[in-house]
């Protein structure tokens, strides 16, 4: 256990606990975009920046990855912290100038004018949540950040010979800006970003749609669960 001060309050923190999790426990709100409960934080979006004073020196750090140390003084709402967050969100605005999510975050952080002359429809803020989830949780590493002439974009992982995406949608659900377009229609799931098309398996009993067949196959191959008798939850006992 270490003792730190956060916004004037002296609190206890576990060894190696991040400033963000201490703040959340104390009811102090720090904005986030690339944070997801299921994966380790990476500090890619930087909107969680706070000011840390240690040994008389002040600097701004990403609270989601910066660990609490004895005697640290954290200021989540000082001018240094606010400026760091505004700088961070302006980088995101450069990447996705017309994204409503990013614009709302910028306004929330105090940016006065979020209007832009750019006509870009880009939504990706390069936080890499999708890539991390696909690699760590799903385990198929189907996607990766790929360099293009317009900056880095999420695309099918060039290291794979064929598309290993199983159409589970974890990336789409996790993406903070809705960049991954996943549409279910007429029994086919389409993920536009890497042109994935997946046939959706039906419940053997009632015929309602379950999940993409390749996703069920992946579950069977990886975890040994028999998916051939797959029925939906309403048809199961």
């Amino acid at each position: 256990m270490v003792k730190i001060t956060i916004d004037g309050r002296q609190v206890d923190a576990e060894d190696e606990q991040t400033i963000l999790s201490v703040a959340q426990r104390e009811g102090i709100e720090i904005p986030t975009l690339c944070k997801h409960e299921a994966v380790k934080p990476l500090g890619t979006c930087r909107v969680c920046m706070v000011e840390v004073v240690q040994d008389g020196k002040s600097r701004s750090v990403a609270s989601c990855i910066f660990k609490a140390k004895e005697g640290m003084e954290v200021k989540t709402d000082s001018d240094v912290a606010k400026e760091a967050r505004i700088n961070a969100v302006q980088t995101l605005l450069e990447r996705a100038p017309n994204s409503q999510v990013v614009q709302d975050m910028a306004t929330r952080l105090g940016v006065q004018d979020v209007s832009t002359t750019s006509t870009s429809t880009e939504k990706c803020i390069q936080c890499t949540l999708c890539v991390r989830i696909c690699e760590d949780i799903v385990g198929v590493s189907a996607i990766a950040m790929v360099k293009t002439e317009n900056g880095r974009k999420v695309a099918a992982n060039p290291k794979n010979k064929t598309l290993t995406c199983i159409g589970c949608g974890s990336c789409a659900y996790a993406c903070p800006t809705g960049n991954i377009e996943m549409i279910d229609a007429d029994g086919i799931r389409t993920i536009k970003n890497w042109d994935g098309k997946f046939e959706i398996a039906k419940c053997k009993t009632c015929g309602n749609y379950l999940a993409p067949q390749v996703q069920l196959d992946h579950i069977k191959n990886t975890y040994g669960i028999d998916v051939d008798v797959a029925v939906c939850r309403s048809c199961s006992a």
């Binding site: 299921a38 799903v138 659900y173 579950i219």
Partner: peptide, 8 residues
Amino acid sequence: KYGLYTPR
């Protein structure tokens, strides 16, 4: 690490 994950 989840044994069997849920997408959402």
